[in-house]
Amino acid sequence: MANKITVGHVHMSGCTGCLVSLADNYLGLIKILDDYADLVYGLTLADVRHIPEMDVALVEGSVCIQDHESVEDIKTARKKAKIVVAVGGCAASGNINRFDRGGQHNQPQHESYVPISDLIDVDVFIPGCAPTPQMIRNVCVMAYLLLRGSDDQKALAAKYLKPLMALAKNPIASKANFNTLMQEVINVGLCMGCGSCAGACPVRAISMEFGKPQGARDLCINCGACYSQCPRSFFHFEVMDEYEAITDIINGAMK
C-alpha cells in the first residue's frame, strides 16, 4: 500500500492503557497496520530512537513539567507530526496525574503533570480512561481518509473529526471531570437525564438519582468521558445525519 499514512505512538506519563486499548481492536489493529497506517514510532514497538516526521502522532499520557526530556519530547512531537491526537484522559485532561504530588522514588521532585494541550496545540481529543478501542479505530480510519481519501471521503472525515477537534481547542475539555458535566451541562439547563454519563464513567462514579446524574466526586479521575459522551456537550446534526454513511465507511474499512 503506497498510500499508507505514518503514525507514531508517543508515550508520556501514562499507564500504556491507551496503547492496550488500541491493541484491543485485535484483528482490526492488524488491518489498520496492513492497509492504512505504518507505525513509524513507538516505545518497544518500533525500533526508532528519535521521533521521526509523521502524519499522525497518537500521544498518550500527560507531561511532567519538571522532566526536561518529556517537555522536549512533546515539543518535538508537535513539530514532527501533521496531526497530534491526545489519546486518553491523561493526555487530554490530566486524568489521575492531577492527583500526583511527587515524592516517588527516585525522582521525588517530579510532581507537576499537565495535559499535553497546556504545552502544545493539539488537533484531536479522544477522552476517556481508557479511550475505547472503537474511538481510537475511528479516529485512525478517519485520519487516513482525511489525508488520503477521495474528496467525498475527505469531507466526511473532516465532518466526523470536527467535534473532536473543537474539543481539543476548548480550554474546558483539558480540565474535564465530573465538575465539567455539572458546570457545562447540568447547571446550564441542558441535561435531559439520558444516563450517557453514568454509562460512560469508567469508575462508576455517576448514578442517576430521580433522573439526574449524581457524582461521587471522590471517585472521579478526571478522564472527561462523562462530559464528552454526553449528547449535550457536543452533538452536530450534520455529522449525526450521516450516521449510516459513517458507520458504513468504518465497517467497510475494517473488513
Binding site: 513539567i65 517537555v71 512533546i74 515539543k75 508537535r78 513539530k79 499537565v114 497546556d118 504545552l119 502544545i120 496545540d121
Partner: peptide, 8 residues
C-alpha cells in the same frame, strides 16, 4: 514560553 507558544 514553556510550551510551543504556550505559557504556564
Amino acid at each position: 514560553h514553556f510550551g510551543v507558544g504556550k505559557a504556564l
